[in-house]
Structure formats: C-alpha cells, structure tokens
C-alpha cells in the first residue's frame, strides 16, 4: 500500500479568490490555441496513415499460388462475439489435384458487416492464417443485403498475402516422396 500523504492546502489569496487571474490565464490559453496547427484531417480528400496492425474489414486471403487458404474449420464463426460470421462447410472434390489433400473448404462464407465489431478475434483464432482484417475501413451500402460480404467479395477484398508456412504443400510433399510404405 502506498503511503497516503495529506498535503496542507495553501489558503487562497484575494486575487485567487476572485478567480479572475485564473480566468485570464485560461483565456490566454484558448486564444493562443486558435493559431496553432489544426489537427483535423479533410477526410475524403485526405486519408489517414493507417498503422501496420490496423483492423479494418475482415477479408479472406489466397496463398501466393492463388489457392484458397480457408478450410472452413469454423473457429472464427465460433469465436465471433457478435456472431457476424456464417460458414457453410464443404469438401474439396477428389479430382482437384492441387487441393485434394486439404479435403475441406468453405462452400459459402458470409460476414455480416452490420454485425461485425472489428475485434479481430477471427484473425487471431484462424489456424490457417486465412482471414485478415486489412486496411479497408469504409464499407457502405444501400441495403442490408449489400452489407453481407459473401465468399467472392471476401476474396476480392483480401487478395493474396505472402505465406510463410505452406502447411498443406508440406503435407503433399510428404505424401509424394515421404514415408509412404
């Protein structure tokens, strides 16, 4: 526990008790503020410099080879506090040689931007690094339906991000040349 020190309050002088000098000081401050540089950004013409970890609209991203990263594990749907995410899981057809070993992919992936609170939990929880809150922040629409981003829109917004792991490719490599017996 911090020690409490009781300070003796100094009695106010007459001029202090009228508060007039203090008011004059205040007036000086506000007056000088008038000539300082303005902090306002002229928004539509000027855009703010976004920090690196800015959380904008959640998007889905492809890996550098243009392949879908999401495997529809639905962890984002689970963790989403306002229940904005809705996934219809589906499987990757066996004929898809490039992606067959991933087995699972979303059939439909919807994020309701009227519900989204930009908390970034979905990005944090994603085990595939497939969902990112990028720097798009001004999404708007005329109807409620427009504000629900479907899978195509989410991939359009997200585009392609670099991938450090290529997790599923490693798996495929192992299958091709690895310990198969």
């Amino acid at each position: 526990m911090a020690k409490t020190v009781v300070l003796e309050r100094k009695p106010l002088s007459l001029s202090e008790r009228t508060y007039l000098p203090q008011i004059v000081t205040g007036l000086k401050t506000t007056f000088s503020n008038m000539f300082k540089e303005k902090a306002t950004l002229q928004y539509p013409e000027e855009k703010p410099q976004l920090p690196q970890n800015y959380r904008g609209v959640p998007t889905l991203v492809n890996d550098p080879n243009g392949r879908e990263k999401c495997v529809s594990c639905q962890l984002c749907e689970f963790v989403c506090p306002p229940k904005a995410i809705r996934i219809t899981p589906g499987s990757v057809p066996e004929e898809d040689e490039d992606r067959e070993h991933v087995e699972k992919a979303p059939q439909e992936f919807e994020i309701n931007m009227l519900r989204c609170i930009y908390c970034g939990y979905c990005q944090e929880v994603c085990p595939e690094e497939a969902i990112f809150l990028l720097d798009e922040y001004s999404s708007s629409g005329y109807t409620r339906e427009e504000m629900i981003n479907n899978k195509a829109k989410l991939y359009e917004l997200g585009g392609t991000l670099p991938d450090k792991h290529y997790k599923w490719d490693k798996k495929k490599d192992a299958e091709v040349e690895g310990n198969a017996h």
């Binding site: 506000t30 007056f31 503020n33 008038m34 000539f35 300082k36 540089e37 303005k38 902090a39 306002t40 002229q42």
Partner: peptide
C-alpha cells in the same frame, strides 16, 4: 468557427 479553432479543428 472559434470553438473549432480553439480546439485545433477547422
């Protein structure tokens, strides 16, 4: 205007 200027706005 004046309130804006005093508060660093335009």
């Amino acid at each position: 205007k004046v309130s804006a200027w005093m508060q660093g706005r335009v």
